Amino acid sequence: MSAPETDAPGGHAPSGHPLDLAAAASLDGDDGDRGFVVGEEDRGTPASTWQAWRPDLPELAFDDWRRVVVIAAHPDDDVLGVGGLLARLADRGTEVIGVQLTDGTAAYPDSPTLSPSELGRVRVAEARRAYARLGLAPPLRCELQDGRLGEHEDAIAERLRPLFRPGDRWLVPWRHDQHPDHEAAGRAAARVCTRSAGGELWEYPVWMWHWAHPTGSGLGWDSAYLHHLTPAQRDHKRRAACEFRSQLRPLSPHPADAPVVPPFAFERLVSPRELVFRG
């Protein structure tokens, strides 16, 4: 999970340089009026608030899923978003094809420790280890530019189109996640996997767990489904997610190397429940 952007191309957030989550930075949306800060100044909705939430939402049914394509904008989005579901699908023998659009090279734009290319190699290796822990084959890589996916939606759709087969279920980043790369990835995937073509689209949030609140309106709860994890399944997901050490631990004592996903953010993402929206 690279960091969001603000004013120029970068990693995880609306259009700009990647956000160092631990250092805190403002996040401005594509429409100019949405934004949030992630860090000690704004720790977002606490994990305890989400865990206390008892929504009347249906449980996701996936017994008839035979082939699943999971799209991620950055190397850890899919594991943090729906890693528990991916592990269960793999255990059931479902064909799961992972596709990661970028190598997450923009997560630490000012790092004195790792260059973008070095960081990319680290994150690709982390993703391979995480996928192995989930029982999955290594994800496919597109090596697109981190932070600029919104400029290449047509190209993304064309790259993804050959993967589509009627009857597919696609798990893609939520198109309202308030991160430009996530939203662009979701939009491009939605153009390929449509009901009219015989596909079924499901969208998973990542940043939503920070800026949203269980009592919030306008989030599309009427299209939301829950996936509950047993304690063993949650531990399985946590172990896979912990492979992303470059995002969870400081690269060095330098402020620019502070972790992208601090502990309070990580706990929201490895909760006992995963959530998806029907596209």
Rank of each mutant, 00 (worst) to 15 (best):
Q178L: 15
P205A: 01
T194P: 02
W170V: 15
L160T: 04
M208H: 15
A190K: 10
C193R: 15
A241T: 06
M208T: 14
S223W: 13
S196H: 14
R161L: 09
W174V: 03
M208S: 12
Q178H: 15
L201R: 08
V172W: 01
P166S: 08
D222V: 03
R195S: 14
P205K: 13
G220L: 00
R165E: 03
A189T: 01
R161M: 05
Y204A: 10
V206Q: 01
D168R: 13
S217P: 08
V192P: 03
E203V: 05
H227P: 02
R165K: 08
E183P: 08
P166I: 09
W211Y: 13
W202K: 09
H227C: 10
T230Q: 08
H236P: 01
P214S: 03
E183R: 11
L226A: 08
G216K: 10
M208E: 08
R191W: 00
L226P: 08
E158D: 13
E200C: 15
R195P: 05
V192D: 06
Q233W: 13
G220F: 00
G220A: 02
T215Y: 14
D177Q: 11
D181R: 12
S223F: 12
A232N: 07
T194S: 04
R159K: 11
E183D: 06
P205L: 06
R159G: 07
L163F: 09
W209T: 02
Q178I: 15
A240Y: 11
L163N: 07
G199F: 03
R191I: 01
P205Y: 12
E183H: 11
R239W: 08
F164D: 01
A197S: 06
W207E: 05
A241C: 10
P214C: 07
R165C: 04
C193P: 03
R169K: 14
R161I: 01
R238I: 07
A185Y: 06
W209I: 04
D222N: 13
Q178P: 10
R191F: 01
H176C: 10
A189C: 00
R159W: 11
S196N: 13
L160V: 10
G220E: 00
